[in-house]
Amino acid sequence: MQKHYGVSPEELSHVAGLLHSGQIVALPTETVYGLACLALNKLAVAKVFEAKQRPINDPLIIHVSDLTEAQSVCRPDHRAILLSEVFWPGPLTLVLPKTKIVPTIVTSGLSTVAVRSPANPVFREILNLVSAPLAAPSANPFGKISPTRAEHIKQSFGDEHPPVVDGGPTKLGIESTVVDLSSSRTRILRPGPIDREAISAILGEEPEIPELKASSDKPKKPLSPGLLAKHYQPESPLQVFSNTEDLMAFLKMEPSIPAATFVITHSPLNENCFPSKGLKFMHLSEFGDPEEIAKNLFARLREADAHSPPLILCPLLPETGIGSAVNDRLRKASFKD
């Protein structure tokens, strides 16, 4: 079977045929690459769980073209309509009561389903060609670093990786914001590119942000992906710091930093400050731009991890805007049981 596809009309038509036949295919979205299948095909969905080695109690997000198609799989309320009018297509996932046609395997037996309309033009064309909702969790083994480029799929799965459509690097680099609208309380379950303030401005209310302090706090059946305390993990240990100043102090004062430790910073750092420690440096943005940091985060983590360093160090961002989403990913990537 062909493993790599471009984005020509002929290739996308062939990919749509693969999906129609019940196969799984890695597709680009504006957030990360997703491992897509027909959302209403139970056997296809089971292939996604098997390929990712994903726990059966961790539900999937269904991707649709628009609100009209969403209504076939969920029951949107007035809040969902308001948010979808502003943020769809885009990186916003809504958790809503599901309809009867949604297979139990997709929702892990829950009465709710997570739904979004992606903005990536390649994914949208595939949705148009298959004329059906697609489930598409991140295209990587469960709990590991999310893929933001086509080559990351092979890195994650090896030579037996699923077919991949190469749509280039993803635009945003981190997963969608997840908002729970399944009750009268509006809750942000996972921070993402659309921040709390933007959602508040549309709804006229301040969404709750539930705290997830430790793995023992996680629900047995999370309402959406990305809610586990331990997630997005590199193979090498990752240590995070409250800010760049704390990281710098650690680098200067800690005598036992292992040689070949990778230091990932927000912007370029003067490496000459640490000539004798044998550290490896890389940065997420030329000028410390939070959106660029988010876009490059997973790719830089992968790049560092590929060297099998004894340790990876990275500071958090201020808890504003997309910084909250970046920090969420870093905390979960560094979480230890």
Rank of each mutant, 00 (worst) to 15 (best):
K336S: 12
L40C: 10
Y33T: 01
T170Q: 12
P191L: 07
R300C: 06
P255F: 12
M253Y: 13
P255W: 09
V48F: 03
S334W: 08
S182R: 02
A26I: 11
P219W: 12
P162G: 14
V165P: 00
L228D: 10
I322P: 02
L227S: 01
K295H: 03
N57C: 09
G6I: 04
S276G: 07
T112S: 11
T148Q: 07
K3R: 15
S176G: 12
G90N: 09
C273H: 14
V102E: 10
E125K: 03
L279Q: 06
R300F: 02
H152N: 15
S65V: 11
S324G: 00
H14Q: 13
E211I: 08
A39R: 00
I293L: 12
S176T: 13
P193L: 02
A294G: 03
S84N: 10
C273I: 11
V263C: 01
M282T: 08
E292F: 06
L316Y: 01
L238V: 05
D305L: 03
A214L: 04
K52V: 13
S146G: 14
S183Y: 00
D305G: 08
S72R: 13
S216A: 10
S215K: 09
H4L: 07
G22K: 01
N41F: 05
A201C: 09
R124Q: 12
V178H: 11
L284S: 10
F335C: 01
I264F: 05
G323T: 02
A299K: 08
S8H: 01
S183C: 01
V32Q: 06
P89M: 12
G6E: 10
P193F: 04
P258M: 00
I81S: 04
H63S: 04
S65K: 12
Q239T: 12
I145R: 14
D180M: 11
H14R: 13
H14K: 09
E235C: 05
I312A: 10
E151S: 05
G204D: 02
P9Y: 09
V15D: 00
I312C: 08
H78F: 01
L313V: 05
D180I: 11
T148K: 10
V64P: 00
E160N: 09
A80W: 08
I153M: 09
W88M: 09
E208H: 07
T31F: 02
V122S: 03
K336R: 15
G17Q: 08
P28H: 08
P318D: 10
Y232D: 05
K252M: 07
S72W: 06
V240A: 04
V122H: 03
A132T: 10
E245V: 07
V240N: 14
S108H: 04
S276H: 14
